[in-house]
């Protein structure tokens, strides 16, 4: 939903650095889409709501009605705002974005452009979101949910830790996995035993 839109004109094309997460224009329409989706969710839920007999007025559908209205109004307003911003940017009216690399004195901010992780090509300057990293984090969470009950906390949490560290560019598998296992084991010991939180032991159930 984001990467396809054209990059705003910027002169800092050096090695894939961009200033801030720049609103790349039409992608902002995701906001009204989310608002409308939530409003539709509430409308369907209100229509199918079973009201208990003889409820006090105003009933359970009263306040949701107000919120549905607010959601839809905001969806319209943010669509209008986005389209106006896109038009203004096309006309070259938004200058201030290029000043993002200067500090309050107007001196350039010393910044080190991050290295892309091994095996990845540099990012296109216009792309805002690194979807591969986001999906890796989400995948790690799914793996955690699948693994937690059968394999136990230590394994599932270590897998989650390593998955997120990998997504964020850590590329030392043996070291990363060791850190992950130490962390999940320490949590199992401190929180599971000392604070009495209920964490599944998994295959270690018999041992511990």
């Amino acid at each position: 939903m984001t990467t396809s839109s054209p990059a705003p004109p910027s002169d800092d094309t050096a090695a894939g650095t961009t200033a801030k997460p720049q609103p790349s224009g039409m992608a902002e329409l995701v906001v009204p889409a989310i608002l409308v989706a939530i409003a539709v969710f509430l409308i369907i839920g209100t229509a199918t709501m079973v009201e208990p007999p003889s409820v006090q007025r105003p009933g359970p559908a009263f306040f949701p009605g107000i919120i549905i209205g607010l959601l839809l109004i905001m969806a319209v307003l943010s669509t209008v705002q986005t389209l106006r911003t896109v038009r203004a940017r096309r006309a070259g009216l938004l200058q201030d974005e290029q000043e993002a690399h200067l500090d309050a004195d107007g001196d350039p901010i010393e910044e080190i452009p991050p290295d892309p992780p091994p095996g990845r090509e540099p990012w296109p300057a216009g792309a805002v979101t690194d979807w591969r990293a986001v999906l890796t984090v989400l995948g790690s969470l799914v793996a955690f949910m699948v693994l937690l009950r059968p394999a136990g906390w230590i394994v599932a949490a270590a897998a989650l830790f390593w998955g997120v560290a990998y997504a964020l560019g850590s590329r030392r598998p043996i070291f990363d996995v060791s850190v992950a296992l130490v962390m999940s084991s320490v949590i199992q010991l401190t929180f599971g035993y000392l604070l009495g939180l209920n964490l599944p032991a998994g295959f270690l159930a018999g041992v511990m």
């Binding site: 409003a39 509430l42 409820v55 359970p60 949701p64 905001m74 969806a75 307003l77 705002q81």
Partner: peptide, 29 residues
């Protein structure tokens, strides 16, 4: 931006609606 702030507010209010209504006991959303 007031539009962004109120949009965020509406999202939060919608999330808070889910569950049993405290007054009538109706299950909502």
């Amino acid at each position: 931006s007031a539009v962004k702030g109120l949009s965020a507010l509406a999202i939060g209010l919608a999330i808070a609606l889910i569950g049993v209504d405290a007054i009538s006991g109706a299950a909502r959303y």
